[in-house]
Write a protein that binds this DNA or RNA. Structure first.
Lengths: 237, 237
DNA sequence: GTCTATAACGAGATAGAC
DNA sequence: GTCTATCTCGTTATAGAC
């Protein structure tokens, strides 16, 4: 709010950061279900009641961690996307998918927090949706770029799914063909299936070269939504 | 072991079942992380130490619940598969996928137990692998049937993934083409991505007609592993 | 042999008085 | 912000009923 932030505000953000950092440590050790304000306070040498000046409840601390996790993942995906600017939609798709996987492997407990089992007794407030949508918006943007440069095939769509496809397109990307939006939502879920299986250990003793495996599967997902490698002499400027 | 089981053995299995039932109730209410032997015992009117006659530790109770969940899912998938006998591999694939989804929606907490975030401090013993493999073996069997009746296309496979594909085929299904086995493992993970997103609420306010959406996505997965609808005059007897 | 009950341990959470 | 009394937990040792 003020350009020259006072020492008070600075101290507050520092303590807030320390609380979240310690909470993330506990998340890794005990899981989200056992996250306790008291334990965080003890570890920080504070008294539990003091924490309530920073987070009104345990659930608010959880919400803050969830938003941070979504934003951290979103930033990783966005910077990967930016690094592929001008190299075409397929390349961007791959970079974003690999960024999601890389972030998840580097932050397995935060990944579990946002894409794993729901925390019993906790329901995320709508405050989280903006951060949660970042990767999805990025994927939509990639497909849109391909669509505008005519680099997008039309996936098949059975008649029974046509009403739902129209709904999805109207909700998420009215400028894109409904078949594409539908395929994109499916690919989105499937991407997290691949990542989740690797992060949660389902690929242990099954898949060895997980990076190559993932690269191939992510490429197949791109194909499924209609992304194709740019033709020689493609119309894009 | 004995054909005429005595009253002792019968009582034992009954108490064991009651313990697991109550544990499942707690699983739904509080999550696996907070599953407590004492609470189970209290609810059953027993004393906590008595439970140790049935389960040597809390982790063993958890393991039993995990095996039961895998077996329950496996049975659902297997009976769906059996119901489609003679209707061709694509039909069987769809039936199994829909059975997995149906079971997961009917048992969300048990689904979270086996395919959600790992339980902190718990690592599943190798006792669980046989039950955990049932759905996977079913999918392999479907693909094998298609392969034997020449109803299987060969998916693409980049050179970089060829060694891993050979490893996977040797491990999981030496009689099937490595490209197919690789695509199958990817489809397997992607299937659980679709199911997990629905069960864990990621599709809330996004996908409305989830059954039709899933059916289509599962059909695309079948296509991805090389399954094709039987041709007119297909060579299968 | 098979089970349940009592009691206890060490560790941690929790509620409330001060 | 501190202290304490009272909960919870997993687990074990022991004793006794059937």
């Amino acid at each position: 709010m003020s350009t020259a932030r006072g020492a008070r505000a600075r101290a507050r953000t520092e303590v807030t950061a320390a609380i979240k950092e310690e909470a993330r440590r506990q998340l890794a050790a005990e899981g989200a279900a056992k996250l306790s304000l008291r334990a965080v306070a003890r570890e920080l040498g504070m008294v539990s009641s003091a924490l309530y000046r920073y987070f009104p409840s345990r659930d608010d601390l959880l919400t803050a961690l969830i938003i941070d996790a979504y934003d951290s993942l979103g930033e990783a995906a966005e910077s990967a996307h930016a690094s592929g600017a001008g190299e075409g939609p397929v390349r961007c798709w791959m970079l974003v998918c690999e960024a999601v996987r890389g972030w998840a492997l580097a932050h397995p407990h935060e990944y579990a927090l946002i894409y794993g089992s729901p925390v019993p007794g906790y329901t995320a407030p709508s405050t989280t949706v903006a951060s949660a949508a970042r990767v999805g918006l990025l994927l939509i943007g990639i497909v849109r770029e391909a669509h505008q440069s005519k680099g997008l095939a039309r996936p098949a769509l059975p008649a029974e799914l046509r009403p739902e496809a129209r709904r999805l397109a109207a909700e998420l990307a009215p400028d894109l063909p409904p078949e594409v939006v539908t395929a994109l939502v499916a690919a989105w879920a499937q991407l997290y299936g691949l990542v989740g299986f690797e992060v949660f250990g389902q690929f242990n003793r099954v898949v060895e070269d997980r990076e190559a495996f993932f690269r191939h599967a992510a490429g197949q997902l791109a194909h499924g939504v209609g992304l194709v490698y740019p033709q020689a002499g493609d119309p894009r400027g």
